[in-house]
Amino acid sequence: MASYYDIDDILTEEELVPVVFHKAANGVIIDPSSETNSVEQGAKVELPLWLAQELHWRQAVSISAPPCFNQKTRLEIQADAACVDLRSRCPYFYEFGCKILPLVGDKTIEILLLSAFKIRYKETLTKAYTAAYTATSKVLTLLTREETNLYEAAQSSMAAFKKWRMGGPRLQRASVLGRKRKPVN
């Protein structure tokens, strides 16, 4: 269970999922197609995950699989997982998948996530260790948040190793102050 204050967890739960209302609800502006301030029974709406899952537990809505786990994405991942642009589909692909899994009860998502992560994990690490600094920007745009963290961790471990081997100053300017230096007058 992620921490209450976890920024990434909060952002994951903002991803939209398609739901169908089983119960009507008054006084809320959620359904854009509705003319009154209410949701009809049977209305199809997209809700953020935090709202959808709570309503699902109270049997007020049913959730279907969100578009980033549709057939097209699955086929692309099966073809070559490492080249799929997961970030534009959902920057929290894996975390979102893990959260959505018990809600839609689709076991194939589990397999999809695992196989995608295994292949992409290897690719990401290989690229982080070998790619030249300038060639990285294109690779980075395809990665999800989790993979970006992984990539940066790999690069910083590489940098730390180099520093340890070559030596260098131990004491440095505190990183909280930011990279900017004041202009020299």
Binding site: I7, K23, A25, G27, V28, L51
Partner: peptide, 29 residues
Amino acid sequence: ARNADHYGALIHHLSLTRNKRCLMAYMYN
């Protein structure tokens, strides 16, 4: 009671706690 008003109120309640979580996380971090 589980009528339409109940679910409306529930959604408002959930939105409140969600907003609270976001604000708290912002301050905490």
